[in-house]
């Protein structure tokens, strides 16, 4: 209730501020922001883009947003940077496909005087960003491993389904998993292999893990939800009851949340796409407009949990939300 009232007040504030903003914006054309995303083939990027398009600053004409699809390819992304530079966008928001290959195009944009803001996945040279906002994938890996091992026991035998090797999410989530495993010397990893973020590949891989190890497997760590859902299918195909082996994944895709609701999946770690995308737009506008007030709900200034701190930070972490049977209904209703 209180939240709502605050939102209303906020809305009223926006309404009052609106003519002023339009006045400043009208002196020039709207600010043009380009978002170079990984791939509109992946659900998370689509969620991210959809949320970004709902940023209030787009509705009131302060800025325009163009989504450029990187098609899961570093070269395509590099070319899109050239496009964005030639088209003289005012700012670029970047979700790199590859942690290292993203550095060079980013440097090019900076040389051309265009500020670049990170969101979701990041490049390795984070100092190149004007600012970036993401969730900590290492933390996600840690949450993932902790939840499964808490459920399966400190001497559990587990398998790990990895993402596409070399991508930052895979590297960092796996780092988090290792951090936890280092403190649990009795946990045995029976199998570990990549299923390339793919559900179909994860089904096959899980079936083969089960064939090799039978019901010794007491837990499954999947570095994303697609693979977690695939693993559950694999478990079902093998003839075990889904839910009898704890499975956890990352991202909070719909199928995974439904699996959590059915009790087939132990936990899904929800990545706040809206917070990351709208937060990134706020960081960009903050750089372009003097005295900018952030508009995204994720900020504490607007009732969220992330401290805005006058936009002075270079790096903001959007917190993860662990979705379990306890809160899944609430999350699903908001989805």
């Amino acid at each position: 209730m209180r939240v709502n009232r605050r939102l209303m007040l906020q809305a009223a504030g926006v309404a009052v501020a609106l003519p002023m903003l339009i006045a400043t914006a009208a002196s020039a054309a709207p600010l043009r922001i380009a978002a170079i995303v990984q791939s509109l083939n992946t659900e998370y990027n689509v969620l991210w883009a959809d949320a970004a398009k709902e940023h209030p600053a787009l509705a009131d004409g302060t800025a325009t947003l163009t989504i450029l699809d990187g098609r899961q390819d570093v070269l395509t992304q590099s070319n899109l940077f050239d496009t964005a530079i030639t088209e003289k966008y005012d700012a670029i928001i970047f979700i790199p496909v590859d942690i290292d290959a993203g550095n060079e195009p980013l440097e090019r944009a900076r040389k051309a005087g265009i500020p670049v803001f990170g969101s979701n996945t990041v490049v390795s040279k984070t100092e190149l960003y004007d600012a970036y906002i993401n969730s900590n994938d290492v933390e996600a890996g840690e949450m993932l491993a902790k939840a499964v091992i808490d459920k399966a026991g400190d001497d559990a035998k587990i398998v790990i389904l990895e993402g596409m090797i070399g991508q930052s999410a895979q590297v960092q989530r796996f780092q988090g998993i290792q951090n936890v495993l280092a403190g649990k010397p009795n946990v045995t990893v029976l199998g570990q292999n990549t299923a390339n973020w793919s559900r179909a590949e994860a089904i096959t891989l899980m079936e083969n893990f089960l064939t090799a190890n039978g019901d010794q497997i007491k837990g499954v760590l999947a570095e994303n939800d697609e693979m977690a859902v695939g693993a559950i299918e694999g478990i079902r195909n093998y003839g075990l009851a889904p839910g009898s082996v704890p499975v956890a994944g990352v991202d909070g895709i719909k199928d995974a949340l439904e699996a959590v609701k059915r009790g087939d999946q132990l936990m899904s770690i929800l990545q706040d796409a809206k917070g990351q995308s709208q937060g990134a737009i706020d960081l960009a506008l903050n750089k372009l407009i003097d005295g900018y007030k952030p508009r995204a709900a994720v900020w504490d200034a607007n009732g969220g949990s992330l401290a805005w701190n006058e936009g002075k930070e270079q790096h903001y972490y959007v917190p993860w939300l662990a979705v379990t049977s306890a809160n899944v209904d609430h999350v699903l209703s908001a989805h």
Binding site: S39, N41, T42, S198, R199, A200, I203, E226, V229, G230, E233, D255
Partner: peptide, 13 residues
């Protein structure tokens, strides 16, 4: 067949 096996139609399938 693939859609039935993965329980969802995936655009990147």
């Amino acid at each position: 067949m693939l859609t039935a096996r993965t329980t969802s139609a995936l655009p990147q399938a």
